[in-house]
Amino acid sequence: MSSESPPPAASGDNQDELILAQKEAIAQDIASNASLVGNLEPVYSLEREFSHDAVFMTKIGNLKGRYAELRRTRPDGNCFFRAVAYRYFELLLHRPDEYERIKALLPRAKAQMIELGMPTFTLEDFYDNFMDHVDRVGQAHMDAQQLFETFNEPGQSDYLVVFLRLLTSMQLQRNAEFYQNFMEGDKTVAEFCATEVEPMYNESDHIHITALTEATGISLRVIYLDRGSQTEASLHDFPDQGESAATTPLVHLLYRPGHYDVIYPVKSTSESGPATSNATVTTTAELSS
């Protein structure tokens, strides 16, 4: 931001700059209160925040049997992408099969992004950086602690987030005809990507999650902790496998209205091996409204 003080508010003044300055102040406040990616904490730490709320307390109580730990992310509008990226890189530390799969997939995705008209020069910068981290983690040149530090270094952390945003944008635009059905008003998919997907700090919705999981093949389960009437937090799997779900998704996220954190199932903490397919979790895939 400019170091000059903003001009006094009067008509004809640069209102955009005043709005940006205010947004910046809010962002600074959030940044000083939350790490980009936090340390592991037990799931029951959520109870402290919701002790006054019977619905949340019941749902958290029921979660504890299935989920052991939680890792918070900064609520800066990038939380969904950052949570997925962090958990996925963490998995790559001990999933050579997944490393091989993503290593083969990403160059094809990059070609599709270029085909779509994304600027090659800058795209390659994000792609190379992401691929470099995939390699470092997949080939054990980076351990869990270094990964944690990388994700808490703002510039680097955001570089990884950007690439996931671009992948999401690519997937939406390549399937614009389908995704057009989910646009509000007469907004085009391209317009949506330009204003809601590619710019950082814009929050993610169902449509972002669908597109990202499609683009990457990373399976995802979102646990919705909200004030719905059931006693169990509802969940949704991406891609939706319906009743026939045979495998547990790779990445699990906890959603509270407006925010995503990483959540770790009891039987597959960050140190566990390949995901076992013992479906101890019900797969009702019920969507919260």
Binding site: G12, N14, T122, A194, E198
Partner: peptide
């Protein structure tokens, strides 16, 4: 363009994409 030289252009505000560089 504002009197102070500031520019009202969507790509410098709500349509900014990290894929833009100085040249763009």
């Amino acid at each position: 363009i504002y009197a102070d030289g500031g520019i009202c252009l969507d790509i410098l505000q709500n349509r900014w994409s990290p894929t833009y560089d100085v040249s763009a």
